[in-house]
């Protein structure tokens, strides 16, 4: 079973990192950087304002970037019939969804955390704030990945599923945003802990909700 999961994870990673020839893992990261770059243009280059708001901007940019790849997470494999073939081989949808969450996080979070370096430079954030942001992203992105895959499973097979997925994800990600961005304020350790807790909860629920959604989509 471990061999099978390793094979599926390897394939998932290849698909998510290199894309299916319709945009790769790089797009959300570029989008993230573009949002971080736009902010100083919009509010002006005042360093105090940027330093105060910059952490929150990075979190919002991360959240928006997380919405971009949603339609590539579950829908293509459902259309291809791959989920049916896995089912026939006795591989449960829950397992596939859990692996997809891991693969999505691996393809999405480390590049995002790397991109947070130039983004924080664009916003003129001090070093200690940058360390804080990286920690909060580490705590919050697993939850974003789990939520993304779950919503992608729920909306797979629906007409206009991609737009609906974004609309559903953003409000449900509000706790992650509050705790993640909140941890950047002074004495934000509890925010960090709560962001990690929200992540853990989404990771624990995601495979079951996503698996049930895929079985229901199959009809």
């Amino acid at each position: 079973m471990i061999r099978i999961f390793a094979l599926i994870l390897k394939r998932d990673l290849a698909v998510l990192l290199l894309g299916r020839g319709q945009g790769s893992a790089l797009l959300p990261i570029l989008f993230f950087l573009a949002v971080a770059m736009l902010f100083p243009f919009a509010v002006g280059p005042e360093p105090r304002v940027l330093a105060r708001a910059g952490g929150g901007v990075i979190w919002i940019a991360a959240l928006l970037a997380a919405v971009l790849p949603l339609d590539r997470l579950i829908e293509p494999d459902l259309t291809l019939g791959a989920f049916d073939q896995w089912r026939l081989r006795g591989i449960a949808e829950e397992g596939i969804v859990a692996l997809r969450m891991l693969a999505h996080w691996l393809a999405f979070a480390p590049p995002l955390m790397l991109a947070a370096l130039p983004a924080s430079a664009l916003l003129g954030l001090p070093d200690h704030a940058l360390a804080r942001i990286e920690l909060s992203l580490l705590a919050g992105t697993p939850g974003l990945a789990a939520l993304g895959v779950t919503i992608a499973a729920v909306t797979a097979g629906l007409r206009g599923g991609a737009a609906l997925a974004g609309l559903l994800t953003i409000p449900l990600a509000v706790p992650l945003l509050i705790f993640g961005a909140g941890s950047l304020a002074a004495g934000g350790d509890s925010g960090l802990a709560l962001a990690a807790a929200a992540s853990l909860m989404l990771i624990a629920l995601g495979p079951f909700a996503g698996g049930a959604a895929i079985r229901a989509a199959r009809g």
Binding site: L7, I8, R11, G19, G21, L80, G81, D84
Partner: peptide, 22 residues
């Protein structure tokens, strides 16, 4: 059935190889 469950962007050998390995 009508859906071959083979990744469209992959060369046929690798797409088949995934299922063969499973």
């Amino acid at each position: 059935d009508e859906r071959p469950a083979l990744d469209p962007h992959l060369p046929l050998g690798r797409a088949l190889g995934f299922w063969a390995a499973l």
